[in-house]
Design a protein around this nucleic acid. Structure first.
Length: 929
RNA sequence: UGUCGGAUAGCUCAGCGGGAGAGCACCCGGUUGAUAACCGGGAGGUCACGCGUUCAAAUCGCGUUCCGACGACCA
């Protein structure tokens, strides 16, 4: 036989599983196949009857295409659901969408104008939301997210709208809902009140002004300050950054405990907080002398002249006044929460000078029709003209903005519906108290989420629930036209409204008249307000989770997990908590998991102007969705998630390693039929059993990582396992046995048995993250079958071995010694002594224990070291001698052996190859490696 | 301005009181029977900075800087 012919006698790897994934091109076909074969439904069937794990989807808002943040969120959810499925749970996933609310209504207004007939507007909103949902849905599915995509929940489904009305009824029944007049966050562009969750702080340029309110009663002033006379007019000086609130000014507040000074200046006598006199005078560029001081409470009710109206306003006392600026605060009850409270205490008029559109109403002298945004200039001019503008200066400060419009909001007193935080509800506890308890009963991943949510609940004001908009679920109440009291049959009427909405959607409520509910329309009026859209998603635990087996879904309540970005502590986590506590006295979730936001490689936010935006659609189309999945799965999401082209490139490299390891496993078990060829571990070689032990430990650790939702540890472990334990050790050593031993020989079948188990475990462990690849490999293992990795669990795969820990200890030491050997061989190689390590022979000197360890491997030691000969000597310290073999190279197994040529029939191969080639013989015998 | 979180190799991340690590990238070499793969070796970090506690600190404490989240600054 010629040298080259021996190659055909080897068992070389063979598999259709390609080395390159070609992911971007092939993934869509997988997704199509999953849909056709109804993979999600079939997983449901396979997991029927198992304990449930309910991840309740936080609904993304049905507007705009998805960005990386969406991708991160959905992929994390998908990893959770899939890992729970593999862990032996029945873990359904029903994606949802948040459909009502201003942003959509605004889009429609932009497109079709503001004066649409309300029902027409609602129809357009509905259609628009549906379109957006379809776009987002396609992108989510493209990421490999498995779920009930044909039956998602939408907050605009009639059923869901109706159930939200029922939820509202429940909150009302608990006595937590009330109607009240008070200043709320108001967005001029929205024409609507905003909830806390819709307000964000941004820097704004304002004009900060110091305004003098002339003291009307000079006699009273001299009495208060115990001075003889103030020859000049006296002014109480206030400082404000919102000149537009001055038309609403009804008082000037001082702190009762502060000391105030009467300061004689060229501008007249100024009343300022004593501690701030110096700073103020400097700011005003004035000189002055303090004539006298008096406590704030002595100024109480001193009459002042409004800076440009004829009315007089009093000085009042309030603890909200701080020792800043002048120490006096102008007070407009319609424009601030504290002002409102102070106004209430002093029975001040609650005039509302600003209308819905942000313009002063017609009764406002001098400024009727002026938008508050344009009011600074005329007001300043007027103050100047009246000689009461003491100072004005631009100021850049942080100011509340509408989170949708990014425009500054105003405070404006309006009549709204609120959910009271401190009203007694279930169990005679206030909502705040229930929420506090519910937070204590919730598990947080990571743990600091608890402190964050608590702090928010402690500090938050009542929930402003009503909106004066069209595209939202209505507050289905009837109020008495004179008393504004709700109808006595409110509970029944809410249910009647819910039924109507169940049939015809929210449109049905708006279309109906009071008489349609048997209510006397001459006495009661039907509300047309809608609820804050946060109430929609905040009640999905009721409208979606509670709807057991009624719709397409059978879900559970409370949910096991809510998983959202950290912004949802003030959003969905909180709105759901409050409605849960209001309705059930508990949170609708058992645990909360939160992830950070996505930033670029330098830690900067993604923005179009920076050009650092990474679109998930683009990554899917170039590198493949699998790469985004692996990126998510290998990032610590508790902080920020960095993504950039370079980072993605690294992820691709890391993916290749795992994929190729898989390919090797598949290629070397292609001829292996576990039904016929699988050997039990006690018939394996020692190193195979060690490989099994390693795999088991790795699997245990990964499963624990999944359990704690720490997926990046899983990715890290899989990567390290493939590289170090398999590629760099076990598989490298195994090649000789797999290739050169008889195809069906016991040593080879033992190796394949181990590889079979490793493959099974590896695929299960990677499947939640690398779903496309795991399914592709699974299909390779089960050609033509209606199979899926997700029909299986990872709980019962690996046989346990009794001596695992001893075995691992032993082989760890062997690997350490092996590293020393490789170092020595490398030196020999660099010196030109050898090329391949098989060209080398090693003599290992080791202490007694190590020597015993190595000798226990017998003749198989040379296979572990991948040399042609390895012998052991006992000595004091570990030393390795490596030399080039003097023997000829076996043409078949490439080992350099003395017995090459000793068989006449096979003059170019070694003894064991001769044995392995003998069809009648037993083949070579191996015990250890 | 407050609270919390983070700062370890080019990248992603471990380590959390006693040797500074892994994977990927990089350099060198081997192999050509995992081959647009695989194996070996190497280089690369004053573990943000400073001060403390300790026999010993990346690891504990305090402070500083930077980054981030969340509050507040609404009058």
């Amino acid at each position: 036989m010629a040298d080259t012919d021996y190659k055909s006698t080897l068992n070389l790897p063979d598999t259709p599983f390609p080395m390159r994934g070609d992911l971007a091109k092939r993934e869509p076909a997988w997704i199509a196949q999953w849909r056709e074969r109804k993979l999600y439904e079939r997983i449901r069937q396979h997991s029927a009857g198992r304990p449930k794990f309910i991840l309740h989807d936080g609904p993304p808002y049905a507007n705009n295409d998805i960005h990386v943040g969406h991708a991160v969120n959905k992929i994390l959810k998908d990893i959770v659901v899939k890992s729970k499925t593999l862990a032996g749970f029945d873990a359904p996933y029903v994606p949802g969408w948040d459909c009502h609310g201003l942003p959509i209504e605004h889009m429609i207004e932009k497109k079709h104008g503001r004066n649409l007939e309300p029902n027409k507007a609602r129809q357009l909103c509905r259609d628009y939301a549906s379109e957006q949902i379809e776009r987002q849905k396609a992108d989510f599915q493209r990421l490999g997210i498995l779920g009930d995509w044909d039956n998602p929940y939408k907050t605009m489904n009639f059923q869901t709208e109706a159930d939200e009305i029922r939820a509202l009824g429940k909150v009302w029944k608990q006595g937590l809902l009330y109607r009240g007049l008070k200043p709320v966050n108001w967005c001029i562009d929205c024409h609507s009140a905003l909830a806390e969750a819709e307000v964000e702080y941004e820097d704004k340029n304002s004009t900060a002004i110091d305004v003098g309110y002339r003291v009307v009663d000079a006699v009273a002033l001299t009495r208060i300050f115990a001075v003889a006379d103030t020859r000049t007019p006296a002014f109480a000086v206030i400082w404000t950054t919102t000149p537009w609130t001055l038309p609403g000014s009804q008082a000037v507040s001082v702190h009762p405990e502060f000391t105030y000074a009467l300061v004689d200046t060229p501008r007249g006598c100024l009343i300022l907080a004593a501690d701030l006199v110096e700073a103020c005078l400097k700011r005003y560029e004035l000189t002055g002398t303090v004539l006298a001081t008096a406590p704030g409470k002595a100024l109480d009710r001193l009459a002042l002249q409004h800076p440009f109206y004829s009315r007089q306003v009093p000085i009042i006392c309030g603890d909200h006044v701080t020792a800043e600026a002048t120490g006096l605060v102008h007070t407009a009850p319609a424009h601030g929460a504290e002002d409102f409270d102070a106004g209430k205490a002093y029975d001040l008029p609650l005039d509302q000078p600003v209308g819905d559109d942000g313009r002063y109403i017609s009764s406002v002298e001098l400024f009727a029709g002026v938008n508050v945004r344009d009011a600074d200039k005329p007001i300043l001019a007027l103050l100047e003209q009246n000689g009461v503008l003491i100072k004005s200066a631009p100021l850049r400060h942080s100011y509340p903005h509408c989170w949708r419009h990014k425009t500054p909001i105003i405070f404006r007193a309006t009549t709204q519906w609120f959910i009271g935080m401190d009203r007694k509800g279930i169990g005679a506890k206030t909502l705040r108290e229930s929420a506090r308890q519910a937070i204590a009963d919730t598990t947080f991943y990571p743990s600091w989420g608890r402190a964050r949510l608590s702090a928010m609940i402690e500090g938050r004001p009542d929930w402003t629930l009503s909106r004066q908009r069209n595209w939202g679920v209505p507050l289905t109440f009837f109020l008495h036209k004179e008393t504004n009291e709700p109808h006595p049959d409110t509970e029944a009427l809410v249910e009647a409204a819910a039924r109507k909405v169940e049939q015809g959607g929210i449109e049905a409520w708006f279309a109906a008249g009071a008489e349609d509910f048997g209510v006397d329309g001459s006495v009661y009026r039907k509300l047309t307000d809608t609820v804050d859209v946060w109430f929609d998603s905040g009640t999905t635990h009721f409208s979606v989770l509670r709807r057991l087996a009624n719709g397409h879904h059978e879900q559970g309540h409370p949910a096991d997990l809510y998983l959202e970005g950290s912004d949802q502590h003030r959003g969905w986590f909180q709105s759901s908590l409050l409605t849960g506590c209001a309705m059930d006295g508990r949170a609708p979730y058992k645990a909360l998991l939160t992830h950070g936001f996505t930033v670029d490689g330098q830690g900067r936010k993604m923005s179009k102007s920076l050009g650092n935006v990474i679109a998930p659609q683009k990554v899917s189309d170039t590198l493949g969705a699998e790469i985004i999945r692996l990126w998510v799965g290998s990032t610590d999401y508790s902080g920020e998630l960095s993504i950039s082209d370079e980072i993605l490139k690294r992820v691709v490299e890391s993916y290749r390693r795992i994929r190729n390891t898989l390919r090797f496993l598949l290629a070397n078990t292609a001829d292996f039929d576990p039904a016929k060829d699988l050997l039990p571990p006690d018939q394996w070689l020692e190193i195979d059993r060690y490989a099994l032990a390693m795999t088991r430990q790795m699997a245990d650790a990964c499963q624990a990582d999944y359990e704690r939702f720490e997926f990046h540890f899983v990715s890290q472990k899989l990567q390290a396992f493939c590289s170090e334990d398999l590629g760099g050790f076990y598989l490298d050593i195994l090649k000789d046995r797999l290739y050169t031993c008889g195809k069906s020989s016991k040593p080879r079948r033992a190796a394949q048995s181990a590889l079979h188990h490793i493959t099974q475990v590896l695929l299960r462990l990677m499947a939640p993250i690398l779903s496309f690849t795991a399914e592709e490999a699974w299909a390779t293992l089960h050609p033509g079958a209606e199979e899926s990795i997700f029909f299986h669990t990872w709980t019962d795969v690996l046989p346990a071995q009794p001596d695992e820990s001893a075995m691992c200890a032993k082989w760890s030491r062997i690997r350490e010694i092996r590293a020393a050997i490789q170092k020595r061989l490398e030196a020999l190689r660099t010196a030109g002594g050898i090329g391949s390590s098989l060209q080398g022979e090693v003599i290992i000197t080791a202490n007694q224990a190590d020597a015993a360890l190595l000798r226990s491997l017998g003749a198989d030691l040379r296979f572990v070291t991948i040399t042609s000969s390895a012998t052991v000597k006992e000595g004091a310290t570990l030393e390795v001698e490596a030399v080039a073999s003097a023997h000829p190279k076996c043409a078949r197994c490439w080992h350099y052996r003395a017995d090459v040529g000793s068989h006449a029939e096979h003059p170019h191969i070694c003894g064991r190859c001769v044995d392995n080639l003998d069809p009648a013989g037993a083949g070579e015998s191996r015990q250890h490696a």
